[in-house]
Each structure stands twice: as structure tokens, then as C-alpha cells.
Design a protein around this nucleic acid. Structure first.
Length: 345
DNA sequence: CGCATTTGACCAGCGC
DNA sequence: GCGCTGGTCAAATGCG
């Protein structure tokens, strides 16, 4: 009780992304009519952000923006963002830094792949190889309750301890970013295959939050999907981690794929960090009108509308947008995303 | 039969 | 230390 009152983020904070740093960037989505992949939506709203408060933040944190800038040609991005979008409108896109001490126990995506502890993922992020191991450990400790993990039962105790220690130092999680989408369906098609692994009720919200994991073997990307309780027409999707594989939809070879490919290529030329993730995630998202029905309870292909965007790109120094306490109110968020603070001198 | 979802239990972090 | 909360696990179940 007092809990909520005290915590300014509590009214919202659907993903508790960083109670600290958060990069709230919005950007125009790939919205190119020319790319047949996108069906034009009649009511496309493009909102611009506003009410942004900018904070200078800790150096260890790399904002989404920074990543973008650092690893890829801005022109490409700009161009991409210039295109108009498909059936859904991105209302806002929020980048969450990697930090996060919040109640995320394990959270990191890699830990899902005990089979490939040091998968490509680890190399791409700020995490050391040891990290993966640590996560693996943590998983093990968790599993101790079930008898099946007989493999290395001996190490369990050991693992537990180690886990604890490592966990402490680690604490860093995969960078995440979220965006709001106006959609009737909860789980939007984004070209990847996801398996739902959990669902929880969201505090103060009648809508549950669903947890998904990329089904690709070595890929540990996760995403959370929930509907805004403030505006039920808005779906909040949070991605975490980076895919270490191609988007299945892309492989099919379509316009979107091409687009994504080129973008990815540029991304690859630099740091394979967030941008990559970002792009791989979003691009496919726009062509989801493609049948490719998924195991989605909302199998219908809807009229999602991506609203949103605003990419704050600052090359000079690390600039982060931290979400002000009231950011939590979606109500504020959405409508007020009408302009974003321009930091440019 | 294989894979995805459902769902209650479990766990870790945090505030009190 | 306790309770709350978010996140995850995994058995059961559903579905093609």
C-alpha cells in the first residue's frame, strides 16, 4: 500500500525499466508506402514527444540513442524513420538501458540457453563471458527444486553460492527498449517466433502481462507484452536482448527483409548492440500483415497502428532521457508525446 | 505426437 | 525478517 504511494513509478512502470535511466526516444517508423509491405492505415497518427526531461546520466549506461548513433549510419536510420508505417502506429518507443537493478531476478536472456552459454549474445553486449556462466548457474539453482537436472547435481550447492556472488556483480541486464503500439491485438507480429512462458497480473491494471521468449534455439531474446490500463487500445511491448539469428520472416525474402537486411548490414559494421536489435525487431514488425499466423491468441491481423516515435540522436555526448515520474502515466505519455525536447544546441 | 499455452509455484530483490 | 512484486519455471493441458 504505502508502497505504491511512495514509488513514483509505480503507477505505471509496466516493465520497471530502469527506475533510473531510461532513454525515451521516439522515432518515426518505417513507414514507406513504396514498400508494399505496409498497408496503409487510414488513421495513422504520428505523435511527437514532449514533456521530456533530460538528464545527464551515468556513463556506464548506454542509451539506445547512443547505440544507434554509434553503430550505424544515421542517414540510414533517418531515412528509415522517414518511411511511413504500416498497420500499427508506434506511439512511443522507449529504450531502457542495460542497467537495472530492479527486481529482475534473472532476467537476462542468455540464461535461457544453457546449451550455449557463451552464445553470440554475450559477445555483443557489455557482458563478459563469465556472465553467461553465471546466468546458467542461476538457472540451475532455480531448477534445483525439480529432480530432473540430475546432470550436475553435485555442483548445486557450489553453484548457488557462486551464483549469488556473480549475480551481484552482474546485475546488468540486456538492454531493453519498449514502445507503445496502438493495437487491438496484444501480441503483435514482428517476424519472429515467440513462445509464451509466463503471464502475470499487472499491478493496478486489469490487463495481464505476458512473457515471451524467442523460440529460436540459441536466441534468448525476450519480450513482454501488456496492455495499457490507461488506454486499453495501447499495447506496450518491451524487448530484451538481441536476436542472434535472422528474422524468420526476413528469410522469406520480401521487401521488409531487404530493408532490414540493409539496415542490419550497416548496423553490423559497427557495434552489434542495440541498434541491431532495434532494427531487427522493428522492421519485421511492420510487415506483420503477412499472414504468417502465429500461435497468437489474437490471430487476427488487425489494425494495429504504430504510433510513435521520435528519435533523439545526439552525437555529442551521451544524453539520456530519463522518464520523469509522471511518465508513468500513459495518459500523459501518449497524448503528450507531441514534442520532444530538442537538446541540440 | 510435437509444440505452444496455461497456470500455480517458486525465487530474488526491494521497501518497510 | 516479512511481505510484496516482478520474473521465471515446469507440469498440465490444449491444439494442429
Amino acid at each position: 500500500m504505502s508502497n505504491e504511494e511512495r514509488d513514483p513509478y509505480n503507477h505505471y512502470d509496466p516493465f520497471n525499466y530502469s527506475h533510473q535511466e531510461m532513454d525515451r526516444s521516439c522515432f518515426p517508423f518505417f513507414n514507406d508506402n513504396s514498400s508494399s509491405l505496409l498497408q496503409n492505415h487510414h488513421h495513422q497518427q504520428v505523435v511527437t514527444p514532449q514533456n521530456h526531461q533530460v538528464f545527464d546520466s551515468n556513463p556506464s549506461y548506454m542509451s539506445f540513442t547512443d547505440c544507434l548513433h554509434g553503430s550505424m549510419d544515421y542517414n540510414i536510420l533517418s531515412r528509415a524513420f522517414d518511411m511511413s508505417c504500416s498497420s500499427s502506429e508506434v506511439i512511443s518507443q522507449i529504450d531502457d538501458g542495460s542497467k537495472k537493478a530492479v527486481g529482475e531476478s534473472v532476467g537476462t536472456s542468455e540464461n535461457n540457453n544453457p546449451s550455449t552459454p557463451n552464445s553470440s549474445i554475450s559477445s555483443s553486449s557489455n557482458e563478459a563471458p563469465a556472465t553467461a556462466a553465471a546466468e546458467e548457474d542461476s538457472v540451475k539453482s532455480k531448477k534445483e527444486k525439480n529432480p530432473k537436472g540430475s546432470e550436475e547435481g553435485d555442483d548445486e550447492d557450489k553453484s548457488k553460492k557462486v551464483t549469488k556472488t556473480k549475480k551481484k556483480e552482474k546485475r546488468q541486464r540486456e538492454p531493453r527498449f519498449a514502445f507503445l503500439t496502438k493495437s487491438e491485438v496484444d501480441h503483435l507480429e514482428d517476424g519472429y517466433r515467440w513462445r509464451k512462458y509466463g503471464q502475470k497480473a499487472v499491478k493496478n491494471s486489469p490487463y495481464p502481462r505476458s512473457y515471451y521468449r524467442c523460440t529460436t534455439q540459441k536466441c534468448g531474446v525476450k519480450k513482454r507484452v501488456e496492455r495499457s490500463y490507461q488506454d486499453p487500445s495501447i499495447v506496450i511491448t518491451t524487448y530484451e536482448g538481441q536476436h542472434n539469428h535472422q528474422c524468420p520472416a526476413t528469410l522469406r525474402g520480401n521487401a521488409t527483409g531487404m530493408l532490414s537486411t540493409s539496415l542490419l548490414a550497416s548496423a553490423a559494421s559497427g557495434r552489434p548492440s542495440l541498434p541491431h536489435e532495434f532494427l531487427t525487431q522493428f522492421l519485421p514488425m511492420n510487415h506483420h500483415h503477412h499472414h504468417h499466423h502465429q500461435h497468437n491468441q489474437a490471430g487476427q491481423q488487425p489494425s494495429n497502428s504504430m504510433l510513435y516515435s521520435n528519435l533523439n540522436i545526439h552525437n555529442h555526448h551521451q544524453q539520456q532521457l530519463q522518464v520523469p515520474p509522471d511518465f508513468g502515466l500513459l495518459q500523459d505519455l501518449v497524448p503528450s508525446f507531441s514534442h520532444k525536447q530538442q537538446l541540440d544546441p
